[in-house]
């Protein structure tokens, strides 16, 4: 499978906010109500299409417990995008965002695109963090923001793809040095061949999704 670029993503945030479920929904299109807890790191991969270019996402899904922070820190290296996830039904997971952000900024390349995600938007009746609060936090810290539901798949696709779009935009603006792998971007193995070759069976063309297409 050829691709124009490979982007490394890292998913971070408190334990139990639904990081692994978001990943599973994105890569396998399914939801596991009781997911195994993640120890260390797990992986996912999927091809997406941005502006007619095939882009491979290599996703690192990390453990959320505070004790594992020192391990997680070593995984920021070489990430082009980060999904910082909190749970809209548990305020403390929102309160911890600052310290996650500090970690992310300190251990990653300065160009890393960060998408703030308020997950579990299907649990409206148990909501503990207002959407506006998430928006305000994102604005204040220069992050992209979305509310998602790994359960209903609402905005999951968009969250991953909008992050890729932003990284791609930065590449086009020359902000990323794509030849330096420390930036989390690799050029595909057959870059000289036109990569707009017919869409493969497994991958769907997901390039044209409007950001914030509000189903949540």
């Amino acid at each position: 499978m050829t691709y124009a670029y490979l982007f490394k993503y890292i998913i971070i945030g408190d334990t139990g906010v639904g990081k692994s479920c978001l990943l599973l929904q994105f890569t396998d299109k399914r939801f596991q109500p009781v997911h195994d807890l993640t120890i260390g790191v797990e992986f996912g991969a999927r091809m997406v299409n941005i502006d007619g270019k095939q882009i491979k996402l290599q996703i690192w899904d990390t453990a959320g417990q505070e004790s594992f922070r020192s391990i997680t820190r070593s995984y920021y290296r070489g990430a082009a995008g980060a999904l910082l996830v909190y749970d809209i039904t548990r305020r403390e997971t929102f309160n911890h965002l600052t310290s996650w952000l500090e970690d992310a900024r300190q251990h990653s390349s300065s160009n890393m695109v960060i998408m703030l995600i308020g997950n579990k938007s299907d649990l409206e009746s148990r909501r503990d963090v207002k959407r506006e609060e998430g928006e305000a936090f994102a604005r204040e810290h220069g992050l992209i923001f979305m509310e998602t539901s790994a359960k209903t798949a609402c905005n999951v696709e968009e969250a991953f793809i909008n992050t890729a779009k932003e990284i791609y935009r930065k590449i086009q603006q020359g902000l990323f040095d794509v030849h330096n792998e420390a930036n989390g971007i690799k050029i595909g193995p057959q870059q000289c061949i036109s990569t707009s070759a017919g869409p493969s069976t497994a991958q769907r063309n997901s390039g044209d999704i409007e950001s914030n297409s509000g189903c949540c």
Partner: peptide
């Protein structure tokens, strides 16, 4: 408290 909460959360995720 966080640790007690976490135990509760994790038990359901142990050999589900």
């Amino acid at each position: 408290e966080a640790s007690l909460e976490l135990i509760k959360l994790d038990i359901s995720r142990t050999f589900p």
